[in-house]
């Protein structure tokens, strides 16, 4: 019965993962690992608490571990501008939202997507990602401004050098 409740959340987990991972196959790997872990740890879920938030928390942890494994972790706000491993992109591609999103540091991307796609409150985002609300706000702010610059094309040339 409970696992059927998890199944009902799969479409949302897939949507978030697709935006987060920027690649369909990688996104479904992320969902699959999240589901496996959620089922293994289901006894830890407190009945009555928000199952969706719990699943997104697990996905966040799986995602971070995958980034660490690929040495792509660029979560720390202090160094995120320099560490992001952006793919070599043609500046023209940056007009694509999909491509622009992959150029945001993972921490900013997570916050922006949880707010924009999942419409979580800032307090919920703080809980899911285990970061203070102040950090949620600063990542949201920087993520949005970065995306704005990328989409407007103004910052593409210089930013590409920075993120290299």
């Amino acid at each position: 019965m409970e696992s059927a409740e998890i199944v009902a959340h799969i479409p949302r987990l897939r949507r978030y993962a697709r935006a987060l991972a920027g690649d369909n196959h990688r996104a479904d790997d992320l969902v699959q690992d999240t589901l496996e872990r959620a089922l293994a740890k289901f006894y830890l879920w407190r009945r009555g608490s928000d199952l969706r938030a719990w699943l997104f928390t697990i996905m966040h942890n799986v995602f971070i571990n995958q980034l660490k494994a690929r040495r792509e972790l660029a979560l720390d706000d202090g160094v995120e501008e320099g560490l992001q491993s952006a793919p070599q992109s043609d500046p023209l591609e940056l007009r694509d939202l999909d491509a622009a999103l992959t150029l945001l540091p993972a921490g900013q991307r997570e916050v922006l997507l949880l707010v924009a796609l999942e419409q979580l409150t800032y307090a919920e985002v703080s809980k899911v990602l285990s970061i203070p609300v102040g950090t949620v706000m600063s990542r949201l702010s920087r993520g949005r401004e970065r995306l704005r610059a990328l989409m407007s094309g103004a910052a593409t040339a210089t930013n590409l050098k920075v993120v290299k």
Binding site: V7, I10, P11, R14, R15, A19, D28, L97, L117
Partner: peptide, 18 residues
């Protein structure tokens, strides 16, 4: 962002995830 990714919600869930 919603326009770009929300179509995923209605894709059939791949068998491997189930």
């Amino acid at each position: 962002l919603r326009a770009l990714y929300s179509p995923v919600l209605n894709e059939p869930v791949p068998q491997r995830l189930l």
